[in-house]
Design a protein around this nucleic acid. Structure first.
Length: 280
DNA sequence: ACGAGAACCTGTTTGC
DNA sequence: TGCAAACAGGTTCTCG
């Protein structure tokens, strides 16, 4: 499900029910996610107060009193769902962790494919953790611009699409937003990354920031799994120019399917959608 | 060092 | 209709 805009949407949904609240009960129903949940997680979390809910790349960071952080990754199919404790239904088969707060809310972490992950780590040296140490820049930080991106593309020989999907190039992009950003920038996903010029890198950096901001404003994209914590869906999927639109005319140059239109190819095992005429 | 492909898991959609 | 294959928003390991 979640790329940066979806995780950011989840973060914003969790803030009102978590920040300043204490976790009074935490139940781990299934610990074998992408890697095993830390032993004794419930015991280590119960009674702690949440100071702040943040995000780094596609990771949710739940800062607790006592200088520890609960790190959560939603994988491909993970969700956070908020329900009033009094109305919480019995947990389903994929509800792996259930949090109750002193505010009367239950937050359920549900992840059918179990590609998600949680860890409880010290605040100190967070960026040095193996999980974070290789991550590239946050695309929505002020410091992310054309030169910053160009520097990270300069030595990469792989296709631009694949390189952008790599979290050490830019943190937080996934398959949807890479396709959409490349379309907005008019750059071919097949180009060798190091052939991108400074001017093109500036266009691409701007396109990445724009598409992420637009998607966050829309509450992310709900294709199948993504829901905001309050249960509402995002609606950015209606604004896709190319993602999932193989065979349709290109919205940029209006070239018909006979001229190519939007086509789907596979790069490193993932679908890529683009317009061969407009994206060079 | 780098890149492609497989693997990890379950659910849904597509095609014969 | 039914079953099997393909596909899905991510990451990480292996192999060349």
């Amino acid at each position: 499900m979640p790329e940066l805009p979806e995780v950011e949407t989840v973060r914003r949904g969790l803030i009102p029910v978590l920040e300043g609240r204490r976790l009074i009960k935490v139940v781990v129903r299934r610990p074998d996610l992408r890697r095993p949940l830390p032993p004794g997680l419930s015991r280590r979390l119960e009674g702690r107060r949440v100071d702040r809910v943040d995000r780094r790349a596609k990771f949710l960071l739940i800062f607790l009193d006592g200088a520890e952080v609960l790190v959560a990754h939603l994988g491909m199919s993970g969700r956070m769902r908020i329900v009033p404790s009094t109305e919480a239904p019995p947990p389903g088969p994929h509800d792996h962790v259930v949090f109750e707060t002193d505010g009367g809310d239950t937050i359920v972490f549900c992840d059918p494919r179990r590609f998600g992950l949680m860890d409880l780590v010290p605040v100190d040296g967070l960026e040095e953790l193996p999980l974070f140490s290789g991550l590239g820049p946050e695309p929505l930080d002020d410091s992310f611009d054309g030169p910053a991106l160009a520097a990270r593309l300069a030595h990469r020989r792989g296709p631009l699409k694949t390189v952008l999907l790599d979290q050490k190039t830019v943190a937080g992009l996934g398959n949807i937003y890479v396709c959409e950003a490349l379309f907005r920038a008019g750059l071919s996903p097949l180009r060798k990354a190091h052939t991108v010029t400074g001017r093109q890198a500036a266009r691409l950096a701007a396109a990445i920031r724009d598409v992420l901001r637009d998607a966050i404003a829309a509450g992310g994209s709900s294709l199948r799994d993504h829901r905001r914590p309050d249960g509402e869906i995002g609606y950015f999927q209606h604004s896709f120019a190319v993602y999932g639109r193989a065979g349709e005319p290109c919205p940029g140059c209006n070239c018909a399917p006979s001229e190519g239109g939007i086509r789907r190819i596979v790069q490193s095992g993932r679908s890529t959608f683009y317009c061969a005429k407009r994206q060079r």
